[in-house]
Simulated assay, not measured.
Amino acid sequence: MKSSILAVFIFLVTGCAVQRNTSASLPHPAAPLSIEQLKFLDVYELPFELQYKSTWVGGLSGIDYDRSGDQYFIISDERSATSPSRFYTARIKISGNKIDTLFFTGVQTLKMANGKTFPSLKEGAQEAADPESIRFNPTTNRLIWSSEGDRAERNGIINIKDPWIWEMDLQGHYRDSFALPSNMHVHTTEKGPRVNGVFEGLAFTGDYRHLFVSVEEPLFEDGPKADVDYAGAPVRILKYDAVSRKPVTQYAYLLDAVARKPDPATAFRVNGISEIMAIDAHRLLVMERSFSIGNSYCTIKIYEADLDGSTDVSGKNGLHIDKTYRPASKRLLLNMNDLGRYIDNVEGITLGPKLANGHYSLLLISDNNFSREQKTQVFLFEIIP
C-alpha cells in the first residue's frame, strides 16, 4: 500500500525542510554491533519535484552518517542530465522514534580528476559518471564514492567505461583512486562486469583500515544472473586496504532467487546487492534488492553476512561451476515485504544516531529513478541487539 507524503516542505535559506520538531542528541561513537532484529519505526517521504539550490532532489542511491558532525552525506545517481552529478549534505532529526525533520544543508558537484564537472551521457558518455554509493572517512575527513562505469550503446557507438572507487574532499574535488582488480575491467565481449551491475555498495570497517566493495551482479565468467528459478548466483565482495587503496581479497556471496515472476514472463527482472554496511572487521549487512517488471514494488532483504572463514576467490573464475570455495554465510534479518507497506527502490543504508532507549538506529533511503511513479523514501529502524 503506497504511503502518503508525511509532511509539507518549507523552503529555508539554509535548506529545504519539513519540520515536526526537536533535535537529537549527538550520538556516542560507533562500536561493533550485535544485531538480533531490525524493528521498523517510521518512513518519511520526499516530494517528487523537490528542488534544492537549483537541483532536482532525486536518484538518491547512497547515504552515510557523519557521527561527529551529526550530518548525512547523500549521493544522487543522476548522470548530469538536469544538473551535474552531485551529492548532498543533510540533517535528519529523530524524536519519539519518528523522523521529525529532514532538511538539506548543502550540495556539491562531483569533479573529475581534471577538476571539471562530469558531462551527461549525451555530452560525453566516455567521461560520464554513474554514482552509486558514498562513505565518509572521519580519519581523513574525506569521502569515498563509487561509479558503475558503462557497457552500452551510446550515441551510436558502444561505450566502454570501467567502474571506479574514488576519494574526494568534502567539496567534491578528486583526491585519489582505488586500484581496479583485473577482473573488474569492462569489455566489449561477455567478460568481466555486466552493465549496471558493478560497484553498488561501499563499507568501511570500524577502524577505517579496510574498505569493502560489493558487486551487484555476477561477473560474466561467474555464470548467469539470479532468476526466478535460480538461487545461488555468486557475486563478489572486494576487500581493500583503505590506506594503500589496493585490493586485498575477494569473497563470494550467493544471491537469493528473483522474488517474483515478471509480466510478461520474459521481461526484465533482477536481484543483486544494492548496498552493504560493515558491522565489524568481517561481518556485513548486505542489502539484496529484487525487482520484476509487472510488479509495482521491490523486495528488499537485509542479511547479516559473515566473511570469516570464506575463501579468497580473487584468482578463481567460473564460480558457478568451480565450487571448491566457501562463500560468505548469510542470516536473514529483515524482509521488507513483511512490513505490509509500499517499498520502493531502496539503495542506501547507514548506521544512524542512538535512539532514546540507547539502541542504535538504522536508516535506509530509496532511489526514485526521477520517475513520478516512484518514491524517495527514508526508512527508520531500531537495531535490537
Rank of each mutant, 00 (worst) to 15 (best):
M1T: 15
L238N: 04
F212Q: 07
A233R: 09
D308Y: 04
A30Y: 12
S371E: 10
F9M: 12
L332W: 04
T82H: 06
I99E: 05
V228P: 01
D77S: 07
I92R: 00
S244W: 00
H359M: 07
E221H: 09
F73W: 15
W166H: 14
F73I: 06
D338M: 02
V286K: 00
D42Y: 02
T55L: 01
L202W: 08
V243W: 07
R135Y: 05
I276K: 05
A356L: 10
S296L: 08
R331K: 14
Y174V: 07
L180T: 08
P163K: 06
I92K: 00
R175Q: 14
N21Y: 05
N196A: 08
A257Q: 08
A281G: 02
L363F: 04
D280G: 05
L202N: 02
N357R: 02
S80H: 11
R326T: 15
F87K: 08
N335F: 03
A30W: 06
N183S: 09
S54Y: 05
T376P: 10
R245G: 07
L380A: 05
L362Y: 02
S34Q: 11
F291W: 08
S292V: 01
Q377R: 06
D162L: 13
P262E: 03
A252L: 14
K323E: 11
I63D: 01
T311S: 15
G124M: 14
V213N: 11
A252G: 14
R175C: 06
E275H: 00
E288L: 06
E132S: 05
I165V: 15
Q71K: 08
N141Y: 06
R79E: 04
F212T: 07
S244Q: 12
E200L: 03
A242N: 10
I273N: 03
R260I: 00
P163R: 05
T188N: 09
N317P: 03
A265P: 09
L319G: 02
R331M: 01
N295Y: 00
R209I: 00
S23P: 01
M112K: 09
I134L: 12
S83V: 06
G149I: 01
E127S: 15
I349C: 07
N183R: 12
D207N: 14
G340V: 07
P131I: 12
N317T: 15
L38H: 13
F118T: 15
R209D: 13
D77L: 08
S290C: 12
P47T: 10
E167W: 11
A226Q: 03
P163G: 11
S34M: 09
T14Y: 09
G348C: 06
D222N: 11
G58C: 12
N337Q: 15
A267Y: 07
S61E: 02
Y65L: 04
I302N: 04
C298V: 13
A242S: 14
R151W: 02
